[in-house]
Structure formats: structure tokens, C-alpha cells
Write a protein that binds this DNA or RNA. Structure first.
Lengths: 374, 374
DNA sequence: AGAAGTTCCGAAACCGGTTTCGGCAAGATG
DNA sequence: CATCTTGCCGAAACCGGTTTCGGAACTTCT
């Protein structure tokens, strides 16, 4: 109560110092001040310093949108997240955003975020943000082999950078994790332990990474000198249930794999379920190596061996690339790859049974009455 | 290759249609067009329609920052997330963001997001965003009883809305989940099942919710007609390890509780660990009810009974309130509470032992040699 | 019919910056 | 010493909107 009622003229605050105030205070033209602050070459060094000093003495902060009206840039990176879909990266969303925010902040930029419920919604939101110039460009997470966002942005001449590769890279800047190399490494590790039949659970079709990881698996077989059996590649699985089904099917083969390489952790979780149902011990009877590095994997027994991705770094790198893209650098110079880090935990080891023994065990467990119907 | 080289004058695109273009096309003054589009009362209905039609015929989209220069509003809600700290809500971050984005989008606003590494960093980022007018106001997640952000924003006359309450609500708009009511309900449910000694694991001191939940616990005891024993309130626990220690200590009391109410799920996870170490079965020997609704809780055995929060709704509501705040509504009209939803799962049931029996069991298990030294 | 209101729109100022242009003064050149 | 540069800054236009102001045309009232 008391004196609290000092009725200011509504949201006046102290009206900020504008560039005109600053110019008046310095006795110069405001154009000069502007050029001084923006490092134009036709300003004397002494003047530049005087201006700068006065600027922070008066606490001058240019309005981003007032600058934008002339420069056409609001210094903001756009990000449209699609939240409906499966998302192994969801636990890391905060890290990803932190990476973007940090890199943006360093360059004196900001991030404009929106969430979409569908592909179409994503396009709509991006076009709106671009039209109103709320963002100067976009980071595109989760790329498809054929990505409608890419064609739309290319057509609209809106700068962007992909997190992931795409079918036709022309006009695209991108950053990606070499997950195919991780898959190769997984196969080689397993082969070195003595596995000769190694199954593969692919990711969602359409996504670029799914194709790449499959290639990485094949490359691993080749380097290990193992022959490829199409039957050892299951149906795609992006969640626990599908992962269980996939593993179940692979393990029911006449000559089942003794090790599984999974494209995503969630599928690997399902493989644990399948193994449990069949009375198989993970890391012994069945080895599993996966990809994503989800924290839940560490809680399983045995903990899941998987490849983890530094999403904070990814966000930061993508932001740098996007800003440089917006500033006009050629896309060919704005492409980068990083490696995934292997988390060597307990879910893989030397095979304890031959495929034949494993098949016998499975058949016995799975069809206790010996039937093979259905 | 081929013809691909059509060398446009760099990022020309087709230069957007401005309000002047539109005015020229209509043969009117641009001021008139602006007023027509913004529903000024001194524009004839027919004119308004003509303008609107022409606007979407030409695909006119005003530049947000060009508007802002005069209106002083960029139509953006600011959000600064602190990512270093413990965070039970982290798995729901996407939902929270989706709620904000949706509500903002509905009002034709956007969201500007930043992440900070410390309290100080948060203040710095908010002040920068506000100064540059990249955001018109802020959503403040995770409030403290004494919140430096609140005083800073009040001093700077920057609009904001709290997610959570704070010690001194003057000048504050807020939205919160009534987690104290959830705690009360938890106690009542346990009392109804026959528990008479119910322990409480508080949340982090300083946070407003911690105090409220403690009060809710006390209120529950009171309503259930149970007497309060200070020893039944443990040290604060915000993570699994501390939760385990807290539960261990409570269970080692001479007259231990047969049920635990935990302020946060993570602490409850620790209680599971403690129970396992003591050979106690959750839901039988020890009942647990918690708060947060983290998905991991459903994977425990038995699944954790907990209160879940609709963070998408929270984000949406906060955004509505903030926008109304920015538009000048009084803070007193911008306060709202919502309820948490109880997820009735397997971690609570009637007590299978009396406190005395439980104490005996614990002592036997925990000190197999009967000693009481360290 | 003239005065007084209303309705509705054009013209211009304005917001806070950036960028262009031109010119003065000092230094370099012949 | 005259001229040509060059360095440096002021003045003004400009960006794309919004808001104020004033007045023409049209009603309404007396």
C-alpha cells in the first residue's frame, strides 16, 4: 500500500536512448554514429572510439527490428520442430536447443522456435515466419531422402541448413553425424568378437539416415569379410514394440543371428524384450549394439552398448553454418560431418552359442510343443 | 548443369509486395490501407473489404519488424530456459514448447527462445532480449520464493508471467499447477488405505513449489486426522541418489513410515532403490506416491503412482496470459491454477506390515549382524 | 438554405535505424 | 602553387509500416 501508487503514464519506463540521442550527445550526425558503430571504413579511428565509449556510457542498444527494416535481417535463426513423431532425440532436445542458443548468442543472434503437428504444418509455419521475416533462415532437423521443406525453401530463396543429408544436395548446406560409420564400426566390433551372423534392424524408411545406416551395416560386413544374407535385415523398427517383433523374427530364422545391430535405441529396447521372452541373455546369448545414446539405455541390464550423439555440438555447428549461409557464403563450403561416440557397455560380447545352438534353443523355448504353425 | 546457372542478382527473389504496392494497386493512400487492415473505425466497411481482398490477392504480408518500429511490439513471447539444473520436466519440454507455440501462433505471435547456464546468465539474456526488443515479454518457468528475475523485470517494466507462484505476488501474473492439492490427495489416499505413518520427501528449498507441497502434505495429515511427526519429513531430494538416501533414513527410524509421499519422481526412483536394498516390496511393504508423471515411472516395477502435469496446456495458458499482460490487462486478472492428474498405478496399496514390523525387518536386513554402528 | 455534425479518406509526420551522396579540408602529386 | 586525391563526416533519402491531422463530401438539424 503506502506510496506504491505512483501512476506512471503506462509503460513509459524511461524511454530508451535512441541513436539520435546518442548523436545529439556527441554533436554528430546520426548517420555518422551508425557507421561508426558498424565499422564502416570511412570513419576515423578516434571517432569510432569516441562513439563506442559514449554508446556504452549511455547504455545504447539498437532495436533489432529497427535495424532490420533497412538491412532486411532480424538476426534470428528459425527452427520448426515436429513434435508428433517418434523421437529418440527427445530427451536431448534441451541440449540441442542449448547448442543453437549458445552459438546464436555468440554471434549476437537469437532463435525463433515453433512447433508443428504435421509436414504440412511445418511448411506453413516456415513460410509464415519467412514472409513476416521473423527469422532469416532455418535449421531443418530430421531430413528425408526427398524433403518437401528443401524444395519449398529453395523455391522461396530462403536460406537453410539441414541436420542430416538428403537425396539431392544441390543448393543445400548441411551438417550430419556419420551414423553410417557407426554402423560399420558396430559390425566390425561384433565380427572381431567372433560373430559371423549379424542381424540388422533398419530405421524408418524415407529418412536419409535409414539408408545410410543400412549402407554402413553392409560396409561393415564387407570389411569384416562376412557374407551378406538379406534375411538378416528385418523390417524397419522405430519403437519398442516393432523392435521386439523384428528381433523375434530374426531369432526365429533357421540360422539366426547371434548379434544385432539396431538403427535406433528404441528398437534395441524391444530386442531386450524379445530376448527376455525367449530366455536369452543379452550380451551373452545375443549381442546388441545400437545407436542414439538414450539415457534409458544405461538403466537396462545389461546396459545397452550404443553410439551417442553430441546434440549440443550439432545445434551449435548448425547455427554457425546457417548464419554464414545467410551472410552469403556458398553452400558447398557449408557442409560438415561429425562422428558418433561409442558407449562401450554391457550388451555385446563374444557369442556363447553357435547360430545352430541358438536356433535350437529358440525353437524349444518359443514352440514348447514343437509346433511350427502360424 | 545445363541451364542451371541463371545468376540472379543475389537473393533478390521476387521482391515482396509492400503496403505501398498495395495502396498503389488500389489507388488509395497507404495510410488508409494500413488503417483498413488494422480495423480502424474510421474506415468504411466497403473499403475495408476491398482492401482485404486485394491484400490476399497480392499475397501481402506485413513485415513484423516494420510494424514493430512504430507499435513497439514484435509480437513475440520470450522464454529463457535454464538447462543446467535438475529437471523432472525435461522429458516434457517438447510438450511445453508445443503449448507455447500453438497459443502464440493462434494469436499470430511467435516464440523467441534462449537457454542460459546460470541465474545470472538468465538475467543477462532476458535483459538483452528485452532491450533489443526481440521479445515483448517473458514466460518465467520454475519460480523461486524470492525470484531475482521478478524484481529485475518489474524494475525494467518488462511484462512477464510466472509458471509457478512466488513469495511476493505483487505485480505478477502467474499460472500454476496446484501441486499442494496433489500432495494432500496423496496423503488422503494413503490414509484411506490404512497408513498411519506417512513420510514426506520434500523438493529443493528455495523453489516455491517445495514449500507448497510440504504444506499440502501437512494439510493432508490434518484432513486425515493423523498427527504430524517432524521426523517423518526427510532432507530435500531432487534426484535418484538423494531420494535413496532420504528413503533409507526414513525407513531406519525406530517407527518408520509405511508410505512415502515424494515431491518429485526422481526422488521416488531412489526410494525404489532403497526398498530393493532393504528387501522391501514397493506397493506392499512400502507404498509410494509421487509427483511429476515422468514416463520412466511407468517402466518401474511396480509402475509408480504419481501425479502428471499437462505441460502443453500450461504452455498454452501461460502464453495467453502473457499476451494479455503485454496488451495492458491488470495482473490481478491474469492468475490461474490448474490441477494435476493422478496416475493410479501400482506403487501404493494397503500396508502389509505395521511400522513396528517394518522396523524389525529393516533392522534385520540392514544390519544383519545386529550392529548399529555406521 | 445555411449551420453544424458525421463519415471517410488523403497527406504527411513519424518510428529508429542504415545507406547513399556530396562536399570540405588535409595531404599528395606535378 | 594549382590540382588531384583521399579521408572523413554531415545531410538527406530511405526502409515499410503506423498514427495524427485536417478537410472534402455527405447528413442532419434548425
Amino acid at each position: 500500500m503506502a506510496i506504491a501508487d505512483n501512476k506512471r503514464p503506462r509503460s513509459t519506463g524511461r524511454s530508451r536512448t535512441t541513436i539520435s540521442d546518442l548523436a545529439a550527445h556527441l554533436g554528430m550526425a546520426k548517420g555518422t554514429v551508425s557507421r561508426a558503430l558498424n565499422d564502416y571504413p570511412d570513419i576515423a579511428e578516434g571517432t569510432r572510439l569516441r562513439v563506442r565509449r559514449a554508446a556504452d556510457a549511455l547504455g545504447y542498444r539498437p532495436l533489432a527490428h529497427a535495424q532490420a527494416i533497412r538491412t532486411g535481417r532480424v538476426r534470428s535463426v528459425g527452427l520448426v520442430l515436429q513434435v508428433n513423431e517418434h523421437d529418440g532425440h527427445r530427451p536431448f532436445l534441451a541440449d540441442f536447443l542449448a547448442g543453437i542458443s549458445e552459438a546464436a548468442s555468440t554471434a549476437d543472434w537469437t532463435m525463433t522456435l515453433a512447433t508443428a503437428a504435421s509436414d504440412q504444418d511445418t511448411l506453413r509455419l516456415m513460410s509464415k515466419l519467412a514472409d513476416e521475416q521473423k527469422a532469416d533462415g532455418f535449421i531443418l532437423p530430421r531430413t528425408y531422402l526427398e524433403d518437401t521443406r528443401v524444395s519449398a525453401l529453395l523455391a522461396g530463396d530462403v536460406p537453410f541448413v539441414l541436420f542430416g543429408r538428403t537425396g539431392d544436395p544441390r543448393g543445400c548446406a548441411w551438417f550430419d553425424i556419420e551414423s553410417e560409420a557407426a554402423m560399420t564400426e558396430a559390425v566390425l566390433r561384433l565380427a572381431k568378437l567372433g560373430h559371423t551372423r549379424i542381424g540388422f534392424v533398419p530405421g524408418g524408411p524415407g529418412y536419409t539416415y535409414a539408408t545410410l545406416r543400412r549402407q554402413g551395416y553392409l560396409e561393415g560386413l564387407k570389411q569384416a569379410g562376412l557374407s551378406f544374407h538379406p534375411a538378416l535385415i528385418s523390417e524397419p523398427a522405430l519403437n519398442r514394440v516393432d523392435g521386439e517383433l523384428a528381433a523375434q523374427k530374426l531369432l526365429s530364422l533357421d540360422v539366426p543371428p547371434t548379434a544385432l545391430v539396431c538403427s535406433v535405441d528404441r528398437a534395441a529396447f524391444g530386442a531386450y524384450d524379445a530376448a527376455a521372452a525367449l530366455g536369452l541373455e543379452i550380451g551373452k546369448d545375443l549381442s546388441v549394439i545400437s545407436y542414439d545414446g538414450m539415457p534409458e539405455g544405461a538403466l537396462l541390464s545389461p546396459p545397452l552398448s550404443t553410439f551417442s550423439v553430441d546434440l549440443r555440438h550439432a545445434g551449435a555447428r548448425l547455427t554457425e553454418l546457417l548464419i554464414r549461409r545467410i551472410r552469403g557464403e556458398a553452400v558447398e563450403d557449408l557442409r560438415d560431418l561429425a562422428k558418433a561416440r561409442f558407449l562401450d557397455r554391457g550388451s555385446h560380447g563374444p557369442p556363447t552359442r553357435t547360430p545352430a545352438e541358438l536356433a535350437h534353443h529358440v525353437k524349444h523355448q518359443w514352440f514348447p510343443t514343437g509346433g511350427r504353425t502360424k
